[in-house]
């Protein structure tokens, strides 16, 4: 059985102690499997950010429990330092937080704060930069400010990878990147997941992004977990999604439209390539069928 790296049980979080407290999270229970890439989605104000802030101890549960890689968050003596080394968090527009004179200084900041040895730090920075496709030899001495937006964002990612997290939480990681920058960022993320076995948690509004990257979706609506499932299952229910103010990604909308046009597209199709293969086979088949029936008709006529 796959092992859960995050276990949330009956989590509620209440903001403020005013006479009218707001329940930002309401009785949430979920598990996230180690090594997975999952996404938390929901409309503005649905509680996504509140939830992920429990995963690295920025918030403590008002009720319920949160276990992250064996550490219980919210215990009085929770080792926050250990927790935050295991959980790396990349905020929106992380490149705005770069400050180092050089790329090296920026990426090395985290490991230095972890009080690692000099050689260890050097090795980690090098590995992290290589991991995000910015080779150490070429980029370490440059100023982060002379690089492109996409490269700067990957440096911010490298800064977190250098701390060797086991869980990586990314809040809207590709907002503001152009098409090329986006695809690059995805490919490096997938590499981190594959090669280092890091569990990735995405928070995103971009449904196309979520559909390509994540294999498990968690939908929040008004502080409640209303749905959990694979992108294929979740995005097939367009009516349900609308009720949570969400829309399926464009490809899924197209698949739905095609089904309405009478093309029986199987439920397991989820990428452009799969759709293409299916439609092409379908065409070949229907072509055959047509020829066959014509031949048959001819036969009868004779």
């Amino acid at each position: 059985m796959p092992e859960s790296i995050i276990r949330v049980k009956h989590l509620s979080y209440i903001y403020g102690s005013s006479p009218f407290p707001k329940k930002a999270l309401n009785d949430i229970s979920l598990e996230i499997t180690r090594g997975d890439c999952v996404a938390i989605i929901g409309f503005n104000g649905s509680g996504k950010s509140t939830l992920i802030q429990h995963f690295n101890g920025l918030l403590r549960p008002s009720q319920g429990t949160v276990w992250v890689d064996g550490i219980e968050v919210g215990e009085k003596n929770t080792d926050l330092r250990a927790l935050r080394q295991r959980v790396g968090m990349l905020f929106q527009f992380p490149e705005a937080q770069l400050f180092g004179q050089t790329v090296y200084a920026d990426v090395a900041f985290g490991p230095q704060r972890m009080k690692l040895g000099r050689h260890e730090i050097r090795a980690r920075v090098k590995a992290a930069l290589d991991m995000v496709g910015l080779p150490h030899e070429k980029y370490a001495r440059r100023s982060p400010f002379e690089l492109s937006g996409g490269q700067r964002r990957r440096i911010a990612l490298a800064g977190i990878l250098a701390m060797s997290p086991r869980i990586l939480i990314l809040d809207e990681p590709t907002v503001g990147l152009d098409g090329e920058g986006r695809l690059e960022f995805y490919s490096y993320l997938q590499r981190v997941q594959r090669e280092q076995g890091v569990t990735i948690i995405l928070v995103s509004h971009d449904m196309a992004e979520v559909a390509t990257m994540a294999n498990q979706l968690y939908i929040l609506n008004q502080g409640k977990l209303v749905r959990q499932g694979t992108p294929q299952d979740v995005f097939a229910e367009s009516e349900q999604l609308r009720s949570w103010d969400l829309v399926a990604p464009p490809l899924y909308k197209l698949l739905e439209s095609l089904r309405q046009q009478g093309i029986a597209i199987p439920d397991n199709i989820s990428t452009v390539d799969e759709t293409f293969d299916f439609l092409q086979q379908q065409k070949i088949k229907s072509g055959f069928r047509m020829e066959y029936s014509e031949a048959e008709a001819d036969h009868h006529r004779r």
Binding site: D178, G179, E180, G181, P250, L251, L254, V272, T275
Partner: peptide
């Protein structure tokens, strides 16, 4: 031109 091509258009 580094524009993001929507999936339906790719298809």
């Amino acid at each position: 031109l580094k524009l993001i091509i929507p999936d339906p258009l790719k298809l």
